[in-house]
Design a protein around this nucleic acid. Structure first.
Lengths: 167, 167
DNA sequence: CCAATATCGGACATGTATGTCCACAATTCA
DNA sequence: TGAATTGTGGACATACATGTCCGATATTGG
């Protein structure tokens, strides 16, 4: 239905939307969304090329949305990663009936149309945490510093393996 | 959205439904549906195990529906080949909010629900050729006998490469 | 300029869906 | 009983989605 890659992309862009104002690094997004960092990096390039996010290299860099969350729909994200393909012509290459589909593919396309309509109608803004909502917000991992000076290391505190709860 | 395998399975079962009464051989189905014969054979085993069709080996064998086309829906076929999976729990393994999904996955599941509803509501019977329908019926290839006696061979007549037009 | 932080881009590795092949078993008909 | 027909099941081959790695490039701050 929805590929793993698209699922990842949606998690990522929602996370970025949750942090409007400050750039999100790939590393941070990967932790929150539970997506493998190397794969996420590849993904993000797609979102950048698709003009949904801007990237900034270097210290304090990361990714930010190019538009308001109100102006980005789920379908926008899908179309940038792997375009939503409706059934427009006969999959068997039969040209005898122009744009008219057989009953089977007409039905299948109707089902796709229903999905497409819902996805086009849903913006990122609608999926952000609402003040009165029951849904928990995204909890970022609180890192604890171990050691001192150059050798210090940030790690997850013991007992906080609960993943973030945006999703 | 819908895997190639499911697409093939649907073509096949619609073809069988179109020929109620007589068994369809895999070879015949493969020709009509434009599905590679070896792959189709594998597929059919799934439909048999899923109790949607019965198989009969030997001369005059083939596949027939186990029930009336009115009692088989598109969703039935999908569920037998690769079950339609709704989003029931958080894909990130977060258990803190029971069965409640985050806004993102709630929306995605709504889209799937819409699709599922349509597919469950569509039976094979609705997709067969209607008397008054504009949609062309399935044209099977008319084979021509070349040669005589034991050496005769059935082949497609020249100039009839037009694929069948059920779909 | 140097070191640290981050993204970029291409090459490579793995896994799953798709597609192929072949020997075998069941059925029919003569 | 023998030959032709037709589905069955397992092993194998290929294509594409998914996932990994690493050097290059850009940016910041000292």
């Amino acid at each position: 239905m929805i590929s793993q890659t698209v699922e990842y992309a949606l998690r990522a862009i929602v996370t970025i939307a949750q942090h409007e104002g400050e750039p999100c690094t790939a590393k941070k997004i990967a932790e929150i969304t539970q997506v493998p960092l190397p794969y996420l990096s590849k993904l993000m390039q797609g979102l950048v090329r698709g003009q949904l996010v801007n990237s900034q290299r270097g210290l304090h860099g990361g990714f930010v949305l190019t538009k308001s969350p109100k102006e980005i729909t789920i379908l926008d994200v899908i179309d940038v990663i792997e375009p939503f393909k409706r059934i427009l012509t006969c999959p068997l290459g039969i040209e005898s009936h122009g744009t008219t589909l057989c009953p089977l593919h007409r039905r299948l396309d109707k089902a796709m149309e229903a999905t497409e309509t819902i996805l086009r109608a849903t913006t990122l803004a609608e999926m952000l945490a609402q003040p009165g909502s029951v849904t928990p917000l995204c909890e970022e991992k609180k890192l604890v510093t171990l050691g001192l000076g150059r050798r210090s290391k940030k790690v997850e505190p013991w007992g906080t393996r609960t993943p973030s709860v945006l999703f």
